[in-house]
Amino acid sequence: MPRSFAVVLLSLCLFTVTFAVNLQAPLYSAYTAESAMGATAVTVAFAAYVAGLMPTLMLLGGLSDKIGRRIPIIIALILGGIGTLALVVAPGWVSLVVARFVLGVGTGLATTAGTAYMAEIMGERQVKRAALFVTSATTLGFGGGALLTGISLSLQGLTFFPSSFALLFAAVPVLVILALRLPRCDKPKAVSLLRLPVFPSRTWPYGAAMGVAWSATGMTIAVVPLELQVHGLGNWTGLVIFLAIFVGFLCQPLARRLSNPTALGLGFFLVPAGYVALLAGSWSQSILLVLVGAAVTSAASYGFSYLAALSEFSVRAPENRARATAGLFVYAYVGFSIPVIASGILADRYGLLQAMGFFGSALLISTLIVVWAWLRPFPR
């Protein structure tokens, strides 16, 4: 298989796996309507995603080193289809929790194996370019699923089998068959199946930046749509989630031209700035400010911070790239999940807007602490 075709095919596989992750997001309120748990119902679904993803990252991040890169990616594609099928067969909160767990496992398998695989296909001299392909494919996937479901619902009306789901079901078997033809350019190692993540030396600022940035994205995806629903703006959910991710994709070519420290510093500035706009929009019921805030945080979360961090982790661990990617995503998903879960609990007690305000304060403090520690000179 020509290298260029292999790169495109692997990118499509990574796109499809992440496409399934937020595919159901515009239907959250419909799935949780039967539950009496309020905002906590959505955050429990987020917790289920992390419950599937974190053990995969922690224990199976290096699985592809043992069994090859293709098998984890194929498994991830199948899991994406199974999780989505569960929501069609038995739509509801319980199915949402099950689906999110399965999708978490798939995401963990695909991102670790896919990052290492892309670098192997493209060659060691193009590690940063390979990271760009991975971030671009996954960013478009995370954002595209929610947007396409939102468009489908606007055309079809409320349904638990929107056209976006049908598209995924059609794509998965085709990609599984094609993925079997991907080149075997990796060399499986005689290592344990269970392998812990690797955290390369001096990469913690990049991991912390991912955690801070993705915490804002998690709030945008999980909590902000609930606030929009309260004010009758629920039909904007798909676009908000799409912008919260897609603008980062648009920023990635610029991020690639910057040094990793420069891109990291820009990300640190953009995250709190964007969240302030998003919070102001939620408070004033201004959808324009919400969209602007989602876009600005996206520039950091999936643009400058994401590419800089993935590139830095990949460069500093050439012999353990899959496990280093797992280490990076441990940072990212701790930030992505814990604030959302805490905010859901606070929202049921104090209100959605108040919970978003609490998170905004924590976000600003966390950003300042990480930047201070990053810029602090090492003792001689």
Rank of each mutant, 00 (worst) to 15 (best):
G144D: 06
Q156N: 09
V50T: 15
A166Q: 14
T139R: 02
A86N: 11
L87N: 04
L77R: 07
L85M: 15
A131E: 01
Q156A: 15
L140W: 10
T115Q: 07
R129C: 00
S164I: 10
T115M: 11
V94Y: 12
T107S: 13
G145R: 10
L155K: 15
A47C: 05
L168E: 09
L57F: 10
G62R: 13
R129W: 02
L158V: 15
G143H: 11
D65H: 13
T149W: 04
V105P: 11
V98Y: 02
V98F: 14
T107P: 01
A90E: 15
G81I: 12
I73Q: 03
V94R: 10
A170Q: 03
T159P: 07
M58H: 00
R100N: 12
M118Q: 03
V172S: 01
G104F: 15
G92N: 06
G143M: 13
A131D: 03
G141T: 08
T149R: 09
G80P: 03
I78G: 03
A170D: 02
G123D: 12
V89N: 04
T159L: 10
E120L: 13
G106S: 08
Y49P: 02
G157W: 14
S136A: 15
T159S: 13
K128P: 00
R125Q: 06
G144W: 08
M118V: 06
S154R: 14
P72E: 08
S154T: 10
P91E: 10
M118A: 02
L103G: 06
M118C: 04
S163A: 13
F142C: 02
L77I: 04
A166H: 12
T107V: 15
G108A: 07
A47E: 00
T159N: 06
I71W: 14
L57S: 01
L153F: 08
A99C: 13
T139F: 04
M122R: 12
A131V: 01
S163V: 14
I73D: 02
G62W: 12
G52I: 13
G83D: 07
I71R: 15
I75R: 04
A137D: 07
Q156H: 11
L167D: 00
L57P: 03
S152N: 14
G83S: 08
T135C: 15
S164G: 11
G61F: 00
V134N: 06
G81W: 14
G106I: 07
F101M: 08
I71H: 11
G157M: 13
M118L: 05
L158G: 09
F169Q: 05
